[in-house]
Simulated scan of single mutants.
Amino acid sequence: MEAAKGRGARSNATGRYETNQSEAFDDGWTGDDAAPAPLRTILTPEHARTIIARNDSPDIGFDRSINPYKGCEHGCIYCYARPSHAWMGLSPGLDFESRIFFKPEAAGLLEQAFLAPKYRCKRIHIGGNTDPYQPVERTLKSTRSILEVMRRYNHPFTIITKSVLIGRDADILGPMGKQGLASAMVSITTLDRSLARTMEPRASTPAKRLEAIRKLADAGCPVGVGFAPVIPGLNDHELESVLEAAAKAGATSAMYVTLRLPLEIKDLFREWLADARPDRAARVMSLVRQTRGGRDYDPDFSQRMKGSGPVADLIAARFKAAIKRYGLDTPRALLDETQFRVPPEARPQLELFG
Rank of each mutant, 00 (worst) to 15 (best):
H155E: 09
H155A: 05
P156G: 02
T158K: 02
I159F: 07
K162H: 05
K162Y: 07
S163Q: 03
S163H: 08
I166S: 06
G167P: 01
R168K: 15
D169K: 05
A170F: 11
I172W: 11
I172Y: 06
L173R: 01
L173K: 08
G174L: 08
G177P: 00
L181M: 07
L181K: 09
A182C: 13
S183I: 03
A184K: 00
S187C: 14
S187I: 02
T189F: 03
D192Q: 08
R193K: 14
R197H: 14
R197V: 05
T198E: 15
T198W: 07
M199S: 12
E200M: 09
E200C: 09
P201W: 05
A203I: 09
A203S: 11
T205R: 05
P206I: 01
P206F: 08
R209G: 10
R209D: 03
L210C: 14
A212D: 03
K215G: 04
K215P: 10
K215S: 13
A217S: 15
A217N: 07
A219K: 03
G220P: 06
G224H: 03
G224P: 01
F227T: 03
G233K: 01
N235I: 04
H237R: 15
H237N: 13
L239T: 03
E240D: 15
V242Y: 00
L243P: 00
E244L: 08
A245D: 10
A245W: 03
G250S: 07
G250E: 04
G250C: 04
G250H: 04
A254E: 01
Y256H: 13
Y256M: 10
Y256F: 15
Y256D: 03
V257G: 00
T258H: 11
L259N: 08
L259T: 06
R260Q: 14
P262Q: 13
L263D: 14
D267K: 12
D267E: 15
F269I: 10
R270V: 14
E271A: 13
W272V: 00
W272D: 02
W272R: 00
L273D: 02
A276Q: 07
D279E: 15
R280T: 15
